[in-house]
């Protein structure tokens, strides 16, 4: 963990959770949540490259409607969680590491935007497209892994 601190970008490893040996049964919950998420991604057509291009050309409200209503739902639910002081199902306090601003937020954001328009997909849809039968997208996913790896290699220099 010491090494992590030297990196500009905050670690995704959340420090407040000390025990991380979670059972397979617990992880199945995330598998099911992911499965439902994947089904909705396909059925809403947000994993369609065509829809992404429509969005970037302002030719359809669909994508804006999906993302906008997702954010509003997320906002209201998070507000309720805070308002009601809800805890996790196993009684832990709900808190997470805040997103930090750095120049990568802008530069990385723009670079991802370029990639989003080229591939017509962000990371979630890549997995859903492969599952949905577009086997060629394995290449895109692999390339995204290479991109992540290269970022990791040079992150301390940029």
């Amino acid at each position: 963990m010491q090494q992590e601190k030297s990196i500009k970008q905050p670690s995704v490893v959340v420090p407040f959770e000390t025990t991380y040996k979670v059972s397979f049964a617990t992880n199945i919950r995330y598998l099911i949540a992911g499965t439902l998420f994947g089904i909705i991604l396909v059925k809403s057509e947000v994993i369609s490259c065509f829809r992404i291009q429509e969005m970037f050309h302002f030719q359809s409200f669909h994508m804006y409607g999906v993302i906008g209503s997702a954010v509003v739902t997320g906002m209201v639910s998070y507000w309720l969680i805070r308002k009601l002081g809800l805890k996790t199902f196993d009684g832990k306090e709900i808190k997470f590491a805040p997103k930090k601003f750095h120049k990568g937020t802008v530069i990385g954001g723009l670079l991802f935007g370029f990639g989003w328009a080229l591939t017509g997909a962000c990371p979630g849809p890549l997995y859903a497209q492969i599952g949905n039968g577009a086997s060629i997208i394995i290449v895109t996913l692999f390339s995204a892994l290479v991109g992540t790896w290269v970022y990791g290699r040079i992150s301390h220099k940029i």
């Binding site: 993302i67 930090k100 370029f114 990639g115 989003w116 591939t119 962000c122 995204a144």
Partner: peptide, 28 residues
């Protein structure tokens, strides 16, 4: 495919998240 995929992987990590982590979770 390869160029676009690379930018997705590099850009999201540099930005610290993607459409889900920033645009949905972060905005929420």
């Amino acid at each position: 495919m390869v160029g676009g995929g690379f930018l997705v992987g590099f850009g999201t990590r540099y930005a610290g998240g993607c459409t889900s982590g920033h645009s949905i979770f972060g905005l929420s």
